[in-house]
Amino acid sequence: MIRVLLADDEAMIRAGVRSILVTDPGIEVVAEAGDGREAVELVRAHRPDVALLDIRMPRLDGLAAAAELRSAAPEVAVVMLTTFDEDDYVARALEEGASGFLLKASDPRELIVGVRAVAGGAAYLSPRIARKVIARLNGARLSRAAEARGRIEPLTPRELEVLALVGEGMSNQEIGRELFLSEGTVKGHVSAILARLGLNNRVQAAITAYEAGLVRR
Rank of each mutant, 00 (worst) to 15 (best):
residue 1 M to I: 04
residue 1 M to N: 06
residue 2 I to M: 09
residue 5 L to R: 02
residue 8 D to V: 00
residue 8 D to P: 00
residue 10 E to S: 03
residue 10 E to W: 00
residue 13 I to Y: 02
residue 20 I to T: 11
residue 20 I to L: 10
residue 21 L to Q: 08
residue 24 D to W: 04
residue 24 D to C: 08
residue 25 P to G: 03
residue 26 G to K: 05
residue 27 I to H: 07
residue 28 E to Y: 01
residue 29 V to Y: 07
residue 29 V to M: 05
residue 37 R to A: 13
residue 39 A to C: 07
residue 39 A to H: 05
residue 40 V to P: 07
residue 41 E to V: 10
residue 41 E to L: 10
residue 43 V to D: 05
residue 44 R to S: 12
residue 44 R to I: 12
residue 44 R to V: 13
residue 45 A to G: 07
residue 45 A to Y: 03
residue 46 H to G: 01
residue 48 P to H: 03
residue 52 L to P: 02
residue 55 I to S: 06
residue 55 I to P: 04
residue 56 R to V: 08
residue 56 R to A: 05
residue 58 P to H: 06
residue 59 R to M: 10
residue 60 L to G: 02
residue 60 L to E: 04
residue 63 L to H: 06
residue 64 A to E: 13
residue 64 A to K: 08
residue 65 A to D: 10
residue 65 A to M: 08
residue 66 A to H: 05
residue 67 A to F: 03
residue 67 A to L: 07
residue 68 E to K: 13
residue 68 E to N: 11
residue 70 R to A: 13
residue 79 V to L: 12
residue 82 T to R: 11
residue 90 V to R: 07
residue 91 A to P: 00
residue 95 E to R: 10
residue 96 E to A: 11
residue 97 G to S: 03
residue 98 A to T: 01
residue 98 A to L: 01
residue 99 S to K: 12
residue 100 G to T: 01
residue 102 L to P: 00
residue 104 K to L: 05
residue 104 K to N: 05
residue 108 P to S: 08
residue 108 P to T: 04
residue 109 R to D: 14
residue 113 V to D: 14
residue 114 G to H: 12
residue 121 G to F: 11
residue 121 G to H: 12
residue 121 G to T: 11
residue 127 P to V: 14
residue 128 R to V: 07
residue 133 V to W: 03
residue 133 V to R: 02
residue 135 A to L: 06
residue 136 R to G: 03
residue 136 R to H: 02
residue 139 G to S: 02
residue 141 R to Q: 04
residue 141 R to F: 06
residue 141 R to G: 00
residue 141 R to K: 05
residue 149 R to I: 02
residue 149 R to N: 04
residue 150 G to Y: 01
residue 150 G to H: 01
residue 150 G to T: 05
residue 151 R to G: 02
residue 152 I to M: 10
residue 153 E to G: 00
residue 153 E to Q: 09
residue 156 T to H: 09
residue 158 R to Y: 12
residue 160 L to Y: 12
residue 162 V to G: 14
residue 163 L to D: 14
residue 165 L to R: 15
residue 165 L to E: 15
residue 170 M to N: 14
residue 174 E to T: 13
residue 174 E to N: 14
residue 178 E to Q: 15
residue 179 L to Y: 15
residue 181 L to M: 15
residue 183 E to F: 13
residue 183 E to N: 15
residue 183 E to W: 14
residue 185 T to V: 13
residue 190 V to S: 10
residue 192 A to E: 13
residue 192 A to K: 11
residue 199 L to Y: 05
residue 200 N to L: 03
residue 204 Q to P: 00
residue 205 A to Y: 08
residue 208 T to G: 01
residue 215 V to F: 09
